[in-house]
C-alpha cells in the first residue's frame, strides 16, 4: 500500500494515475466504475443488520486518517526523495501519511463531484416526473429542463472546441458554440444571479428601518455601533470628520482618538473581532463534538 500512495514526484504511470487520453486510463476508469458499481450492489443486497457496521467501519477509517494526520509528527520536508528518507517506524508512518494526503484529497474531490452529479440527477428526475404527470406549474419544469440541456450542450461544446492546438484562434473567430455559451452563461445566468443577490439590499433596508429602534439600552448600544460602522464605510464622511477633528484639535494625541476611523477601528478591534472569535471558538467546539459523534457512529439520526 505504501508504494502506491508514495507520490512525491508528479505521477505518470502507476495504479492511481495514467497519461491522459491513453487506453490505460480508460481501462482504469472502466475497472473503477465496475468495482464501484459492484460495491454499491453488494451494499444494496447486504443484510440490513450488516449495513450499519460496514458504514461505521468506513466512516471510522476515513476519520482515523485525518486524526492521525493531525496528531502524528509531520515530516519537515515532504519533497525529499523516497530513497533519501530517514529510516524508522515513526518516520515511515509520518511520510506515508503525508504522501497519502493528496490521494485522499483527490478521493474527496471525486466524491464531492458525485454529489454535484447526484443533485443534477435528482433535479432532472423530479422535474421530468412533474412534466410527464402534468403537475402544477409543469411549464416551469420544462423551462428548467431545457435550460439544463442547453447550458450543458453549449458549455461542453465550447469547452471541447478549446481543447485543440488552435484554441487561441477561438478568441478571434468566436464560433457559434462560443456565442451560445456567452448568451446563456454571461448573458442570462450571470445577470440573473447578480439580480437575485441584489434583492437582499431591499430586505436589508426594510429590516433595518423596522428593527433598529431605541426601545432599550441594549438596542441603543447596538444602533450606535451600527451607525458608526455604516458611517465608517462612507469614505467622504470619514475624510471629512477625521480632517475636521484633526484641524480643530491641532492633532492632539488624545483628541484624535475621536476620529471616525479611530472609533470604528476601536469597535472593530476590541468588540467585533473578539466577539466573532468567541463565537468561532464555540462553533469549533460544537463541530469537534459533532465530529466525534459522527466518527464513532454515535449519532443515531445519521446512522439509521
Amino acid at each position: 500500500m505504501i508504494p502506491f500512495l508514495a507520490q512525491v514526484e508528479a505521477p505518470e504511470y502507476n495504479m492511481w494515475n495514467a497519461k491522459p487520453g491513453t487506453p490505460q486510463l480508460w481501462m482504469a476508469i472502466a475497472i473503477a466504475m465496475v468495482v464501484g458499481f459492484a460495491i454499491m450492489v453488494a451494499m444494496l443486497y447486504a443484510p440490513t443488520r450488516m449495513r450499519k457496521p460496514i458504514a461505521s467501519a468506513a466512516i471510522f477509517l476515513a476519520g482515523l486518517f485525518w486524526v492521525l494526520v493531525f496528531l502524528f509528527p509531520q515530516p519537515i520536508d515532504t519533497q525529499v526523495k523516497v530513497e533519501q528518507r530517514p529510516p524508522g517506524f515513526v518516520q515511515g508512518i509520518s511520510f506515508w501519511l503525508a504522501d497519502a494526503i493528496p490521494v485522499v484529497g483527490t478521493f474527496a474531490n471525486i466524491l464531492t463531484a458525485f454529489i454535484l452529479g447526484l443533485g443534477v440527477f435528482s433535479l432532472v428526475r423530479i422535474h421530468l416526473l412533474r412534466v410527464t404527470k402534468k403537475q402544477r406549474d409543469w411549464p416551469f419544469s420544462v423551462v428548467l429542463l431545457v435550460s439544463i440541456v442547453a447550458m450543458a450542450f453549449f458549455g461542453y461544446a465550447d469547452w471541447y472546441s478549446r481543447l485543440g492546438p488552435n484554441a487561441q484562434k477561438i478568441e478571434e473567430s468566436w464560433p457559434l458554440t462560443a456565442y451560445g455559451k456567452d448568451l446563456l452563461f454571461d448573458g442570462m445566468l450571470q445577470v440573473m444571479e447578480a439580480a437575485m443577490f441584489s434583492l437582499i439590499a431591499f430586505f436589508i433596508l426594510s429590516a433595518a428601518y423596522r428593527a433598529f429602534r431605541i426601545r432599550s439600552v441594549e438596542a441603543t448600544i447596538l444602533l450606535a455601533a451600527a451607525m458608526i460602522a455604516m458611517l465608517s464605510l462612507m469614505g467622504a464622511v470619514v475624510v471629512g470628520w477625521d480632517g475636521w477633528i484633526e484641524q480643530v484639535t491641532n492633532k492632539d494625541p488624545f483628541l484624535t482618538n475621536f476620529t471616525l476611523s479611530s472609533v470604528s477601528g476601536f469597535i472593530r478591534d476590541n468588540l467585533q473581532t473578539p466577539g466573532i472569535r468567541a463565537i468561532d471558538f464555540g462553533i469549533g467546539l460544537g463541530a469537534l463534538a459533532m465530529g466525534l459523534r459522527l466518527w464513532l457512529s454515535l449519532e443515531r439520526a445519521g446512522a439509521n
Partner: peptide, 9 residues
Amino acid sequence: GTANSMASN
C-alpha cells in the same frame, strides 16, 4: 481536501 492536498504536496 484540496487545501490539505496543496499543503502536503
